[in-house]
Design a protein around this nucleic acid. Structure first.
Lengths: 345, 345
DNA sequence: TTGTAAGCGTTATCAC
DNA sequence: GTGATAACGCTTACAA
């Protein structure tokens, strides 16, 4: 069936040297001087045979597998439409390739994340973990933290000293709502991206409240709805807002996904965006540019988040104590047509 | 730093047995009878110590790493907005988990795919390969084919006997264009999803031509444009079609991504969809449901494609010669508002 | 400078 | 039934 494996032994024999020499030459060990001639012979023998060292053998002896584990905590029914996953991958792959690492990916249900990654670690399948998603601070994670296993969170986790790379969701929400204030709106509704058990949802709602307070606008719970990740929930909650007849001229939708649903709801009620209701979303998903009208939103630097997290992780893996275990990246307000000035009717 | 690794030795000692017994018990080797009492002792010792066998050691001795490699051939600048990636992952993960496998993912530039996966194979990092994307039939791939390394293509590759799971792009295009014919259109434009060097693009264009021919409509090259994966190219090519003033009342856009751009172009020219130009897309991306108007399109069973490919691969890995090396899955025409009947002006 | 030998943690083959 | 012992392919002291 498949051709017999080429081992360092074969290379050694062809080059007329010992396996040690092969290893030394190919790993470019500086301490040991090898004559250029031998070096050359080894290299060409290796190339000729198409020799690639066995990863398992290397791992067994070195204790490192050169694989990073990316654990995505996602609800199973939301994976297929998760626009962040490709962005995270994009951010990761450059760095990973540059360091000659590989990426092992696993998606776990946030409800039962527990052992998924602990087993990866225990089996020595990965040298470090990148975590993304709505994480609960579970036992497994605390074990890793205590053991000092290289771990970086893309996003945030409460009550944890693990390294993380995140945006300031609260400040970002302030930016979004502040923009609506500037456009002259004072009755601003809010639909959260998720239930408040999710930290990001709480933070974004917190930013919303804070901005209103600063502008001495009383917080009105009647203008707030709680979303649930999906387009449908955006649609539903916007319908609910409109149906309640509590007047508002703008809305901060803490997720573009939900905003798409909200737009649909608004237009079904024959209301105009931004004339009747101005909209600001959150995330700047690829789709945001192509909604009708294009959606003003907060751009999340997802790829950079991932790439910075990866850098941090690699430093942890190399035992260089990271200078800064908590990185906060800036977001950007992307102004498009959905957030026009208040309609002067 | 991190706690010392728990080995089978530790488990053996705690259970008061030999390492062999530990291995036999934990791997549930049927041929060797172990007394229930010892069995029990081993299990509880393992659980107590949190023992997980070292993957590298297992791999070294068994020759299998229990990892599947997913190679995505993608242009680097298109990764972040590739809506297929999450769908593929979704299709894969169930099967992978069920078989206690892991997923190693790598994204390679289609231009320089060559060695990326060959090295993974040579280093024994993966037991099988899943390939997705516009593949060129490169040398590396032919080597793997000759060696009989378990490989399955999600999609299609010309001149290759590798296993694959795909849709019939030509038939799918026929479905799309046929629908437009049924709606009374006879002047139907076409924008391909990609340059014709990509097999899927050729096939879809072929289906377009075939359907017209069957309806005895002469193929008019002036109505055909060649897209290039991006929203922008969809926009540009639709502008070009409109600018040329060759009359048409409908268009088959062989990718939803491009269709989004095309919609934008049409509306910028103050034309109405479907009144002035009816549209059918291809792929049924998550966004298709939320364009304005919602996009009629061909639903690609991406997740199933991936999951079937994974099944096939696992059978290959287990040396069970697959019954059927070429699987073709059905597509579905999703009729939404963008493909209304011809405007009776 | 190069080769010899030990050991990484597991599984598999045997005697016991 | 159970326990030594030999592989798997590599790296790395250490010896030559």
């Amino acid at each position: 069936m498949s051709a017999k494996r080429v081992t360092s032994h074969d290379v050694a024999r062809l080059a007329g040297v010992s396996r040690t020499t092969v290893s030394v030459v190919l790993n470019d060990v500086q301490e040991i001087k090898i004559s250029p001639a031998t070096r050359q012979r080894v290299h060409s023998a290796a190339r000729m045979l198409g020799y690639v060292p066995d990863a398992a053998a290397q791992a067994l002896v070195s204790g490192r597998v050169r694989i990073i584990g990316l654990i995505l905590a996602r609800r199973p029914d939301h994976i297929s439409s998760d626009a962040f996953i490709p962005q995270i991958l994009e951010g990761l792959l450059d760095t990973i390739h540059k360091h000659d690492l590989r990426l092992l990916i696993d998606i776990v249900d946030p409800e039962h994340q527990e052992k998924a990654y602990l087993e990866l670690v225990r089996a020595n399948r990965i040298d470090g973990i990148l975590l993304s998603g709505p994480l609960t601070d579970d036992r497994a994670l605390r074990v890793l933290e205590k053991e000092g296993f290289p771990t970086v969170i893309i996003g945030h986790m409460q009550k944890s000293d693990l390294c993380s790379v995140d945006v300031d969701n609260r400040a970002a929400a302030c930016l979004a709502v502040g923009h609506l204030l500037e456009m002259g709106h004072t009755r601003i509704a809010c639909i959260t991206n998720a239930p408040l058990t999710y930290a990001a949802a709480t933070d974004r709602l917190g930013g919303y409240k804070e901005t209103l307070e600063k502008a001495t606008i009383t917080y009105d719970p009647a203008l707030v709805r709680y979303g649930d990740f999906t387009v449908e929930s955006g649609y539903r909650q916007m319908c609910s807002l409109i149906a309640d007849q509590v007047p508002f001229t703008a809305a901060f939708i803490a997720s573009d996904t939900l905003a798409v649903g909200a737009i649909s709801a608004i237009q079904e009620h024959s209301l105009h965006i931004p004339g009747d209701i101005a909209l600001v979303g959150f995330d700047d998903l690829p789709a945001a540019k192509y909604t009708k009208p294009p959606l003003t939103t907060i751009r999340l630097p997802t790829a950079q988040l991932a790439s910075r997290a990866c850098d941090l992780l690699i430093r942890l893996m190399n035992m260089e104590e990271p200078v800064n275990g908590r990185v906060i990246l800036d977001v950007e307000l992307i102004i498009r047509a959905s957030s026009g000035p208040r309609n002067m009717r």
